[in-house]
């Protein structure tokens, strides 16, 4: 028996998300009284792999296969399926990110496993396996019961945090059986974002709306984001107008995010926008209109011109950091 956790790497390195997933898997393993086994796909050093032990993994299955250098949904699901069978997994944990959403459903069918998607906390009970998840774009929470012997959980980033347990993981090479049938899609071109905090990773997000008036006014949004180690985002009209790339659009049909802090400048807060950000732990709104719906969702607010408030905020953040 085990709790299996898929730890994705980025150019051979793990990041906070990977450790958070292991911490979470280990907490569930504690509830089930079993061990935590991580699966790593790609060229990751042994030092990096053994460090997963710090967060509770007792073993790491390391898969190195050049064909897996790019995400191929079928092949990745097949690797995890074989690992889950070998380790007799009761629960498989992965991130609720693009990769997790690509693999989890295929794996679920292979294992005939019920899925809890976008989970933010530990199960309420493990017998039956009951767990909370959000529904209706954050307008409600549901308690679901997963009735299958194997369950798949995809964890929302930054929802559980890191828990150190101080162990060292044993690394085992794992060679799954893959055929050409698993590799039907081929990647022709990759463009990676470098030197920028990803919106889906970010603990702090600075976002601008139509109240920013035009793309030429985005410099202070970017500067504040840099100062806070934050990612930048925008509302739908902004991406539709082409002021910002579509990848930054948060809200219904765009990205759904749940950072610790979401700062909305010049965003009125239409329900479609709130659907994408309402799970944020803290929302700050700056808007000229005191009746803007964003203030109903916000924890802190300033009624005022975002363009005037932004430079002052940058100065205040710099000052605070200097303390």
């Amino acid at each position: 028996m085990s709790v299996l956790v898929y730890t994705e790497n980025w150019d051979g390195k793990f990041k906070k998300l990977s450790y958070e997933l292991v911490s979470y898997a280990h907490a569930i393993a504690g509830m089930l009284n079993t061990e935590t086994v991580a699966v790593s796909i790609g060229d990751v050093s042994d030092t990096e792999l053994t460090a997963l032990g710090k967060y509770g993994a007792s073993r790491v299955l390391s898969v190195r296969d050049a064909r897996l250098n790019q995400l191929v949904n079928q092949a990745y699901a097949s690797v995890l399926y074989q690992a889950a069978v070998r380790e007799n997994a009761q629960v498989v944990v992965m991130a609720n990110n693009f990769t997790g959403k690509a693999i989890a459903p295929r794996l679920a069918v292979k294992l005939k496993a019920g899925v809890g998607a976008g989970i933010a906390g530990l199960p309420v009970t493990v017998e039956p396996f009951a767990i909370h998840k959000k529904a209706f774009n954050g307008k409600a929470f549901a308690t679901i019961v997963i009735k299958t012997p194997v369950r798949i959980l995809t964890l929302l980033q930054n929802s559980f945090g890191l828990k150190e347990n101080g162990g060292v993981a044993a690394v085992e090479a794992f060679i799954p059986d893959l055929t050409d049938h698993d590799f039907k899609t081929s990647v022709e071109e990759v463009s990676k974002v470098t030197g920028k905090i990803l919106l889906t990773d970010a603990e702090v997000v600075v976002s601008g709306g139509r109240g920013m008036k035009g793309p030429e006014n985005w410099a202070p949004i970017e500067e504040l984001a840099r100062e806070l180690g934050a990612a930048t985002a925008c509302s739908r009209p902004v991406s539709d107008e082409g002021w910002r790339p579509h990848e930054e659009h948060t809200g219904q049909t765009g990205k759904i995010i749940a950072p610790n802090l979401y700062m909305a400048f010049g965003i009125s807060g239409a329900i479609q926008h709130l659907a994408g950000v309402s799970s944020s732990k803290c929302i700050v709104a700056v808007n000229k209109d005191p009746d803007a719906p964003i203030f109903e969702a916000a924890d802190y607010g300033i009624v005022g011109d975002a363009m005037k408030v932004l430079p002052e905020m940058i100065a205040a953040v710099k000052e605070m950091k200097g303390e």
Binding site: A113, G114, A135, A140, F141, A142, V145, E296, G301, I302
Partner: peptide
Amino acid sequence: VLVEHIRYELPPSKAKCRMV
């Protein structure tokens, strides 16, 4: 059916926005 929704809850009502 592998997963059942057994109960729903509305999120706790949010504290009033603190204005600065």
